[in-house]
Design a protein around this nucleic acid. Structure first.
Lengths: 209, 209
DNA sequence: TACTGTGAAATATTTCACAGCA
DNA sequence: TGCTGTGAAATATTTCACAGTA
């Protein structure tokens, strides 16, 4: 069932479902229907059930889903039922925002080191994470089992940093620099250009009339 | 041609094309083919041409596109050929990252005010933007023609801030809080949950083997 | 009864392939 | 010749609608 190709958008929605289920879990909710969960996520309930059906059967007909169990299943599917070690390159404002974003750590995404080229930043400690010179990256990555690298450098530096990451065993890159990263097929790269979100919003506001 | 429904993903890609065209323009490039631009954006060239065809004909057969003119056209389509005034609620690390993100200002997205409820933050000036108490929002919005509101508060506060925004004439909201915002149809809301990007990356790295 | 799980139908999006034109 | 623009075909995704079942 899970050997098939999964639409990227389905993977995204699984993350969304997990986030909403976490809220319901905190409220002590035991059961939920696809209708209610879907509504809360802003999607169609058939779509939610179809998304889940790529991976198995997690509900009970006539009843619904157990909130804690469905969350557990989704986490196992996403691979977020364990800790992920990460490094980040670029300790500007956005980089510091990620280093301080404790919700990430709460979900198992832990930064073990940060890198920069700015002398003033090297040696800083941001939310318990030490900022190294980028030259020390090979050494630091040898010491820890880091799988994810986050790029919050300016566009100019992004490809170089990505190449360093890839050469030293990073398997997945989250790139927030506004430039597309070239990479071999055995490395996963997710791009997120925040400025494009503003463009998209402008388009729709523009056309409201 | 533009009265038809435009896929959201097409709007997103227009932003992507604009970003890449800006780079080519800086390099002094005059002409570009759909093939080259598409490759640089990681999309199929027929798709690029189809995206543009929703809005008109901007190229020359046998030749390609004029870089500055195509950029101008896309900016007009997106509505980013003018200035957009914005406010932001939540001056935490992410909020400060946006306030300091000069690329936004360069593209015409200008913050005129920031808001927070933390006494320690009220009165701060971040990159020339004053931080007001959230209570002053009605007054500030009356003074400026602000169309976009950005939410970088914790999840708990997001809906309340959105309601305030909407009550005081904001037309578009960019929500970075990890919660879905309820809103009337005459207000556009774009959601961006950064933690879900990490989930998605985990999924694909997890399955690499 | 009240829900899930899922084929089938409907819809949306992408890609092909080629006519049209500088 | 070498490109764009675009119908048509192919593919992907969403939604419907209902059988199955606690």
């Amino acid at each position: 069932m899970s050997g098939f190709k999964i639409p990227g958008i389905t993977v995204y929605r699984l993350g969304l479902y997990a986030r909403v289920l976490e809220q319901f879990l905190e409220e002590g909710r035991e059961l939920i229907s696809s209708d209610e969960l879907a509504k809360e996520c802003g999607v169609n309930s058939a779509q939610l059930r179809k998304d889940l059906s790529y991976f198995g059967q997690f509900g009970v007909r006539g009843i619904g889903y157990s909130v804690p169990q469905l969350l557990k299943h989704i986490r196992r599917i996403l691979g977020t039922d364990r800790e992920w070690l990460m490094v980040i390159a670029g300790v500007g404002h956005l980089g510091q925002a990620f280093l301080n974003y404790n919700l990430l750590a709460k979900r198992g995404f832990k930064f073990v080191a940060a890198f920069d080229i700015d002398e003033k930043k090297i040696g800083m400690v941001v939310n318990d994470v030490y900022v190294y010179s980028i030259e020390q990256l090979p050494y630091v990555l040898r010491e820890h089992n880091v799988e994810i690298g986050v790029i919050t450098t300016p566009a100019k530096a992004a490809q170089e940093v990505a190449d360093l990451f890839i050469d030293h065993g990073i398997k997945g890159i989250l790139n927030f620099a506004p430039v597309r990263i070239q990479h071999p097929p055995h490395v996963v790269v997710e791009h997120s250009d925040i400025t494009i979100l503003f463009d998209k919003l402008a388009f729709y506001v523009h056309r409201l009339d």
